[in-house]
Design a protein around this nucleic acid. Sequence first.
DNA 1: AAATCTTCCAACCGCGTTAGA
DNA 2: GTCTAACGCGGTTGGAAGATT
Length: 329
Amino acid sequence: MRKPEQFAGEKVGKNFVAGNKVTTKLRKGLWSPEEDEKLMNYMLKNGQGCWTDIATNAGLQRCGKSCRLRWINYLRPDLKRGAFSPQEEHLIIHLHSILGNRWSQIASRLPGRTDNEIKNFWNSTIKKRLKVGNNITKSSSNNSTDETSSDPSSNIMEAAMFISMHDHDHLTTMCMESSMTSTITTSPSSMHMNSMLMNDHDHLGHLPPLLQNNMNLEINGTSNLFNVGMGGYDDCGVLDVPYMMGMMGNDDTNLGCGVMDGDVNANPTNYMVDNKISTNFNHQFIDGKVKVEEVVGFDNHWAGESLKLGEWDLEGLFPSIPSIPYLDF
DNA sequence: AAATCTTCCAACCGCGTTAGA
DNA sequence: GTCTAACGCGGTTGGAAGATT
């Protein structure tokens, strides 16, 4: 936090006189309760307007920008204070996997939360957890253990996990967020997943209709709840909402599971691997052609930190994605 | 108890965008 | 069309508070 700036001068009207120099010295740093009160009273009385005028009219020695920030991030009556709920945390992770660092867009889906608050929360808490989770994942992967972890810190892995899937020549890395209620272990055989991002080549496509459907996927005899997500980024790191997806219905009774090539837009079923998955999503299985290759870590996805959203109109996209919720507790 | 380290988060800064003259 | 001021956003900073040594 910054200390409120002290003035070595005397206030004369709007100005400050320090020595023989007259300046309109603006305050910086922390806001005092008196300043908060002035701004709050002014805003409640007059509402939002030109911030420069607000700063002046409210009798504050602050720049308009500073007033705006203080109001938006702290004084606004509709702000929710306090810790993030698990639902909020989960939603932030989910939205970040789609939107990246577009904090204001993420914040717009969490009523009462500010972009600054979410950004801080992400940088200080979630990002750290994901990194720790990655280390755990890597080390457990190296140890080739299938045992359920008894380490309470394994909950950290609920944040995000990654699975690579092979189909023909293509390797797809799916980023999966686990569901909040899931029990995550170090074994890929019992993970509950909530969404995924997929790497593809530079193909664009429309959003598949199964986005975010919950699927119970059986891997090696163990049931796994998947929730298929949207998104993906190409080799250049440009976000690419693919028509390829991890799982997709290929006829009335079966689902294909795996990776589709960019040429599938004409007939997706051509590119389905031939796994048979029941339509009620209760007993799917993966055969040898699409396999859960490995649980890989955060770093894989985090190449996507330089991920660019390109020309995608994500706002325009959202109405077609019913599963991206707006929290309203 | 004191010193040092770490975490958290309010606030600033700089840059791109927008609106109005 | 150009300029300018204000706005809005994301990245970064820095200091208080808490944790650890």
